[in-house]
Structure formats: C-alpha cells, structure tokens
Design a protein around this nucleic acid. Structure first.
Lengths: 332, 332
DNA sequence: TTGTAGGCGTTATCAC
DNA sequence: GTGATAACGCCTACAA
C-alpha cells in the first residue's frame, strides 16, 4: 500500500497538493492535477479512511438497524440504503438486532467506530438508552422517534382503516389479528391502528381473536404458522385475519390450508409490508404496501444532508392498502 | 466523547496503562485495573477504532459480498456472519453487487476502509481483478476461488445428481433448466452440474429446455416468472423443471399456474437453496439444501483464525437434495 | 509494574 | 497556488 507521500514524490508535488486534488479543497492547476491523478493511478494509491476519520472526525460509515434481515422487507430497505449511500461515498453496516434480544453493546460499538449516522428502521423501547448515548456521541440518528432528532417513519393508519373497511364491506365482522409481537409494546402501532380501524367501522375488538407473539418475538413464517395454529385451537369463529407482516400471513396461510380451510373462500387473509413474495402466493396475498426502497433512500439522503450542514425535512410516508386474491366476501 | 487521556487522569494512571487494561496486553495490578475500569465507566469512554486502526493496521471490519440481498439465501448468510462476527468483536458490511453490474470501486472502497477480511458468498469472473487488488492490499479473502487464498464453498454436484436421479426414477425425461444467469459464465457451476447429472442418468440435454437469464441477471421471482413464460412460449414438451434458485422456482410456479398447469401433476418443479419460503409454498417446493447459516459462521471463523495467525482449513460443504410436494411421477 | 515518546496517514492552518 | 507543520487518538517499543 503506497501512501500519500509516495504519490507526492512520484508526481513531484507536495503532500498537501495531493490531498487537495483528492478532496477538491483548493484550486490546483490542471497540469498538476493531471500529474497527481496519474501518480495515484500508477501507485495504486488508496486513501486511508481511518486516518482521514481521525483527522476529520468523519468516517463515511452509516448504520442501519433492523430486527430481522431475513424479512425481505428489511432486506429491501437495506439494499436501497446501501445503494444510495455508495453513490454518496458512504458505506453502511446493517445491524440485525433480534427483536427484544437487543444488546446495547451493538450501539456502543457503533459509537466506537465513529459511525456518522444511524437509521432505525425498526424500533423498540429497550434500545432508547443506547440510542440516546449514540446521539450524545454525535451520531446523527433518523428514526420514528422525535426524541432522537430527525424523523422518517411510515404511517399505517389510513391503510389499515381502508383494509378493515374493505373487509367490513365484504361482510366480515370477526377479524383476527396475528400480532407476532406483544401487543403491550407501546410502539407497536399496527395493533393500535387495527383497534382504531375496528372502531371506525363499528366492529368489535374481540380479545379471543388477538394472538400475541412469543418471545423472542421474531415475526416470521414459523411464528405466523404457529400463531394461526394457536388461534385455530382456540376458536374457528372468525372469517378474516390480519397479520402484522407478510411473513406471518404466509405462515398463517399454511396453517389454514393444513386444516382444510380455503383462502379466501373460508378465511380472508391480509398481510403487511407488500414483500415481493406476497404477489407470488396462491392466492396472491392482500397486503399493505409500504415504500421500502424509498425509506432506505430517503434515510440516506436525510443523513447526508444533516451531515453536510443542510436542513432536512422530517417525513412520514403513508402505507397503502393493496387488495389481493386472498380476500373475498364473508362466507355465506 | 472523552478520550483515553481523560480516563488516565481520572484513574490516576498513565495512558499506556489504560490501553493495557483495555487490550490485556500486559499485566496490570488488579487494583489499577479496577480503577481504570471504573474511570472508563464513569467517563463513558469509548475507544476510537479509527485511531486504533491507524496504529495497528487492523480495523475489526469485515465485508460480505453477495449478489442480491433480497434473496433470503444471502440474507441468511449475512445474518449468521454478522452474529458470529459481533461475538468476536468485528463488524460486517454487506455489499450487494447487482450481479454483472459490479463495479470495482466497491472493492477499492473496502481497501480504503482497511477492511480486514472479505467473504465472497457469490462469485463472478468480472470481479477477479478487483479482488486480486484487495489481496495485494492485505485483505484476507475467503471464496470459492483458491487463487484468492482460503476457500469456503459449497458443492452442488451430488445434490443435483440425486435430484435428477429422483426425477428420472419418477419417469421424467425432458427436464427444463431455468438458469437465471448466463450459462456461459464459467463459474456457473449449477448448470454444469445439471448437465453432468443428466449424463449420469442417461438423459438428453435438450437445448430448447434451457432458459438463459437476461442481463442484468437478477435471478429473482420476476426472472423466474418470465423465464417460465418464455419457456412455455417456446414449448410445452417438458414435465419437470429445475430452477437455479428457489426464487426463480417460485416465480416459475406462478407462470405455470397462470397457464393452468398443475404442480406437480403436470409439471414437477425443483428449486435450489432451500430458503424458508420453499416449505411454505403450495405445494411445498422440492429444493436443494445448502448450509447458509453455517457458511456465514464458518467464513467468519476462518477469517478470524487467519487474522490471528492461526491456520484454517479450506472447506467445501455439500448441498443435499430435499424432496417436496412439488414433484411427482411423470404424467401418464 | 508503570510511564514516556514516536509514529500510524490525513486534514487543515498557516506562511511562502 | 503551493508547501511545511501541528493535531487527530491510540499502540507499543523502550526506558524507568
């Protein structure tokens, strides 16, 4: 690895000049610029980011926090964030906290690594203290919590209301909810939105039809499968089910099929997130669409703006109900 | 952010002593150790990794290269790698090269960032030069290519032979292959294995039944869907299809259904990777199982060993055929 | 057992 | 427009 000094030597200029052509921090004559570039090329010189970070206190390193990378929803956010970040010269590390299994050290490590910015694509109360430390440590964070600075969030309210309305109009009255998580978690807004939506439609909230997740609260295919089995073991008196995400919905569909229940003839199913798989299911899963890629991009852009002293607007994107073949009229 | 100096001051010791208790590089009396730890705690001190990196030339930063993070196969590798890495004090950045859309800069950036190690979970010829540079830059790399140092790979051969044998025994003779990529890519071993497997079974390799992918070669659900449509447009004279991965298989299933073809009664379908979704399909997708989590863990362990001057063994894991409801006897 | 000092590769502030 | 020089925070001989 050749260093800046060697490049300067090869180009016959000072080290400072090399830096200036690299960073564009000062005018350098075209001729010298050329010589320097050539020297860089020939020497195969690579700027040492660690050194730069030490000097500038900026690492060009972003972090994304998700709760389950295996959920394509987050994979998509991660991919978009990464793509946008790379275009802006940043690298991103995705931290997969297994929900509720969260350890503060993961965040402290981020501080230690001088991460410039942080996007919380998932949110749990228990990480608040750590995130607060991160803020104090100078890390810019973007999340759904105004307490941490700028906010980028998605609101499910309207979509869930629309969805419940759609089901109600199809004659459904007893709608189950597969939570995946604990409905006691304060930030678990989908459950709150669902309750509200029922209220709006004048439908009852039936406790028996609410299935809580089990620790460690990984809302995945298996969780959906087991949640539905639990529900079916409890009662069959429901005609529609809303799952906290598409994975849970798809898992639930399997459990329903195994019990000989037809979708949507017997039970209508709705998921959430609109992962690509949803439309490849048989029947195609009705779901709630959220702008996953946009979130990743926006988060990156916002962080970029903040880090460069520009302003950035807080944003709340809105989800949209996406109907599908997995819902139908209430069975006569 | 308090620095080491402040900790030293607070603990009434020298900076060197602080470092030694942090790194365990020298014996420090229990008493002083205690004082230092307390001071660290009180001051909320976080070691600056950039500074350490500059001094030691080690970043504690690993990278994983995949071609499509949205493919749960890679998400799983990424998650496992990350988990193992964190336990060892490393952080990992996952780089999603969109296959064949690869740009060398991504790798050069890794060099610039003093990444200690690199795991190529995917492989394409076009990145060879860049990876070579990474090696020269001192980055330890693990991949399927011995040229780059240690190897960690998975062999599909036996699994594919078993799979074709299974299909042959069920009476299938005309087996299609949805490549997703270009079959001309030298490293695209699944295609080679498939050809070999046909040979072993004495089955013909039918050019018409081989569907090449389209640039930019993202072998995902849509690609599978379109590949199958293309195949169906070409001929219906096949009774089984092997897809390069589960996503392609699932996409193909949709196209088949749309044409009124039943799975497995009319067409048997086999995927590859054994992503969790496979078993949640209707019918459950026969596939080829690969140890995804194990690969992520192993790669990390190997890198860790190498980086710490230990030896590590090259490993080739073997895939296994996993039957499923998506295959059945040749339709009479 | 503990402290001192030089250096890691860049940036940034100054004179030149 | 260009070139020295002092940080940046930490590690690590080497000295005490």
């Amino acid at each position: 690895m050749s260093k800046r000094k060697e490049v300067a030597l090869a180009a016959g200029v000072s080290e400072a000049t090399v830096s200036h052509v690299i960073n564009g921090t000062k005018y350098v004559s075209p001729e010298l610029t050329m010589r320097v570039r050539k020297a860089i090329e020939e020497k195969g010189y690579r700027l040492n980011q660690a050194a730069r970070c030490l000097a500038t206190n900026r690492s060009g390193h972003l972090a994304l926090i998700v709760n389950n990378l295996k959920n394509p929803r987050y994979a998509e956010v991660a991919e978009a964030m990464q793509e946008e970040a790379r275009a802006k010269g940043y690298i991103v590390s995705t931290i997969d906290i297994n929900l509720f299994n969260f350890t503060e050290d993961a965040v402290f490590d981020l501080i230690s690594r001088n991460v410039d910015g942080l996007f919380l694509a998932t949110y749990i109360d228990s990480m608040e203290p750590a995130i607060k430390r991160a803020c104090e440590g100078g890390i810019k964070v973007i999340s759904g919590n105004p307490e941490f600075g700028h906010i980028l969030d998605v609101s499910y309210r309207k979509a869930i209301v629309d969805m419940v309305k759609c089901l109600a109009e199809l004659g459904h009255e007893r709608i189950a909810f597969l939570s995946g998580y604990s409905t006691k978690e304060s930030k678990h807004t989908k459950y709150g939105d669902f309750c509200e939506a029922l209220r709006v439609q004048g439908l009852p909230l039936i406790r028996e039809l609410i299935v809580e997740g089990e620790p460690p609260y990984i809302a995945d295919l298996d969780a959906g499968y087991h949640s539905m089995k639990e529900l079916l073991g409890r009662t069959r008196d429901f005609t529609a089910v809303f799952a906290v995400n598409d994975l849970v919905a798809i898992g639930a569909m399997k459990a329903l099929r195994e019990q000989g229940l037809r979708i949507p003839e017997d039970i209508s199913v709705v998921g959430c997130d609109d992962i690509q798989f949803a439309s490849y299911m048989e029947p195609a899963l009705a779901t709630i669409r959220i702008p996953k890629g946009e979130m990743g991009m926006l988060a990156t852009d916002m962080l970029y703006d903040i880090l460069n002293g520009n302003t950035c607007e807080d944003t709340v994107l809105t989800a949209a109900f996406q109907t599908g073949a997995s819902i139908a009229k209430h069975p006569a």
